[in-house]
């Protein structure tokens, strides 16, 4: 499938330079340099423990970095809580385990943040929420609770919940890893649709088919470092580093 690249602009969405992070004594991210442009779709892969989830969690400050700088949409992440809340409201995130709010209905999950963070009136927030639920193709589940939905449906609600904040950047943290095989496709289709609409996305995933189809760039991480990055075609056909070759042979080999 041919993908469109016209979306990518020169505008810098995320700028990470010389970023380092430690968990106690463990050096989990080492000298990360990364520039993401508006409209770019990036897939981050690598063995478990390589720091890929931690990397994207640093972008919305769910993890704090200790050295270097992260600038999101022109705002630098510091200890200033105002900046953090601002960035978080503009960067959507979808998690491996959905993390929907179980005490609220699907619709309430979607309207909560716009109403409290953006102070959108309830009527308008509901309209946006229904629009987003239609986009992920489950408007009929709006009044059910998350516990009554299947895993795939819950994950699509989680995507809709993020989209309701009209984010400029979306982070996906292994969003299909906790799903049964027959549900992975419905979630990936939603993500592909988003990608085609030109959303800036960073996806941590092992779905190499997805990477081939939508990514503009694939980043391979190991031991807390970016080992290799390239366009997907080149990345999969001609991996340069031995570690990348080993990794690809392990996940594509069966």
């Amino acid at each position: 499938m041919e993908k469109t690249k016209i979306n990518i602009t020169d505008e810098v969405a995320i700028h990470i330079s010389d970023m380092n992070k430690w968990f106690g004594n463990f050096h989990v991210l080492r000298d990360i340099n990364l520039e993401v442009r508006r409209g770019e779709r990036i897939v981050v892969c690598g063995p478990s423990g390589s720091g890929k989830s931690t990397l994207i969690r640093c972008i919305n400050r769910l993890e704090e970095h200790q050295k270097g700088s992260i600038i999101v949409d022109g705002t630098e992440l510091t200890t200033d809580l105002k900046n953090i809340d601002k960035i978080r409201s503009e960067v959507g995130m979808v998690f491996q385990h959905f993390n929907l709010f179980p005490h609220l209905t699907t619709l309430e999950n979607c309207t909560l943040a716009p109403m409290w963070v953006r102070e959108t009136p309830e009527k308008e927030a509901t309209e946006i929420a229904m629009e987003m639920l239609e986009k992920v193709k489950i408007p009929e589940q709006a009044h059910k609770y998350p516990g009554q939905l299947s895993g795939g449906q819950q994950q699509r609600v989680a995507i809709a919940r993020s989209l309701c904040m009209k984010p400029r950047i979306m982070l996906f943290d292994e969003v299909t890893s906790a799903l049964d095989p027959e549900m992975i496709k419905e979630v990936l289709d939603t993500m592909i649709q988003l990608a085609e609409e030109g959303m800036t996305m960073i996806c941590v995933t092992h779905e190499m088919g997805f990477a081939r189809q939508v990514a503009d760039r694939v980043i391979f991480m190991d031991d807390g470092q970016i080992v290799e990055q390239n366009e997907p075609e080149e990345f999969f056909k001609n991996p340069k580093s031995d570690r990348t070759k080993l990794f690809l042979s392990q996940i594509l080999g069966h």
Partner: peptide, 18 residues
Amino acid sequence: LPLGQHEASASLGLTYWQ
């Protein structure tokens, strides 16, 4: 409560008290 609940509400931009 799973940690994910804190993370999800933080990632949506809700403040601590919200």
